[in-house]
Design a protein around this nucleic acid. Structure first.
Ligand code: FES
Ligand code: FES
Lengths: 143, 143
DNA sequence: GAAAATTATGTTTTCAAAGACTTGTGAATA
DNA sequence: TATTCACAAGTCTTTGAAAACATAATTTTC
C-alpha cells in the first residue's frame, strides 16, 4: 500500500509526537529503536521531512527531533503526500496513465470509493492526537 | 497499490477474456498492444500465470492465450493473490510485522475496513463479466 | 518449416539499507 | 571571553536486492 519509507515515516512521526510532548527532543537512535527501523534509513527520511517542514530538528548537544504546535495538528495524509506523493490518492488502480471519469478503467467507480475512504482516514488522523492511545498501550508502533 | 506486474496481469486477463469469447486464441503481441504494456514483460507474466492455471495457453501455429469456462469465473482477487500475494489483504498498513487485533497499529481499525472493501470489490469483479462494458467502450484498458 | 509459446539469461532502474564524512551547536574550560 | 570539545543532525557515497524491462535461443505443434 505505502512504501517502506512512508511506513517508517508515519510510525516515526507518531513516536516523536509522543516522546516530545513537553518540549523535549529525541535522538535518532532512540527513534529507530522505538519503531524498529534501520537507523540510517530513518535518519535520512526524517532529515528530508524536516527540510520540508513536516517536523523540526535541532543540532548539537540537547539537540534532536521534535514537533512544534503546528506539526502536531498535521494529518497522516500530509506525511504520505510528502513521502509517496499523491499517486495513491489519485492514480488509477489498474495503472492507466491517468485516472479519468470519462475514460475509466473497469474498476474505476468502485476503486474511487476505496481511495476516498483511505484519504478520509488519513486526513482525520492527526499526528498529535494518537499519543494517548499509545501511552495506554492500546496501539503499538512495533511488535 | 498493486505492483506494476499485477496491474498488467489484470488488464491482460480482462483483455484476453474479451478477445477469446468464442474459443479463439490471442497472441502475445496483440495483447501487449491492446493493454499498452512491454511485450516481453507481459509475456513472462502470462507464462507464470498459465503455469498456475490462472489462464490457458497453446503453442504452435494457431496457438495463443485464452480462458476456459472456469478461468472466466475467476475474480480479480485471485489474480492479485497469484501475483502479489495477500499482503495487501492481510498486511498491516503501517508495516508492522503482522497485523493483529490484540496489538494493533494506530490506524488498524480504520484500515481494516479499507482492506475489506478492496477485497470485496476484487472478489466481486469476475474476469469474464467485464467484457461487455469493454465492448461498449464504457471502460478502457489503455489511454 | 514456420508460427507460436517457453526457457534462459542479461540489462537497467528503483527501492531499501548501510557507511563514512561534514556541519552546526551548546557547554565546559582555560 | 575566546577556545575547545563532544554531541547530534546533515550530507554524500556505496552496497544489496528486487522489480521492471530486453535479447536470444529453444521447444512444441500445426
Ligand atoms: S481509471 Fe482506473 S481508477 Fe480511475
Ligand atoms: S496492525 Fe496495522 S493494520 Fe492491523
Amino acid at each position: 500500500m505505502f512504501s517502506k519509507t512512508c511506513e517508517y515515516a508515519i510510525r516515526a512521526l507518531i513516536f516523536i509526537a509522543q516522546k516530545t510532548k513537553d518540549g523535549d527532543r529525541i535522538g535518532i537512535k532512540e527513534i529507530a529503536k522505538g519503531i524498529d527501523s534501520p537507523e540510517h534509513f530513518i535518519a535520512k527520511i526524517l532529515q528530508d521531512l524536516s527540510k520540508k517542514g513536516i517536523l523540526q530538528s535541532a543540532k548539537g548537544p540537547t539537540g534532536g527531533f521534535y514537533l512544534d504546535k503546528a506539526s502536531r495538528k498535521q494529518s497522516l495524509a500530509s506525511i504520505v503526500r510528502a513521502v509517496d506523493g499523491d499517486k495513491i490518492f489519485q492514480g488509477c488502480g489498474l495503472g492507466l496513465k491517468q485516472c479519468s471519469e470519462t475514460k475509466p478503467c473497469p474498476i474505476h467507480h468502485e476503486f474511487k470509493k476505496v481511495r476516498k475512504d483511505l484519504l478520509q482516514i488519513l486526513e482525520n488522523a492527526k499526528v498529535g492526537a494518537l499519543t494517548d492511545a499509545l501511552e495506554n498501550s492500546m496501539v503499538f508502533l512495533k511488535r
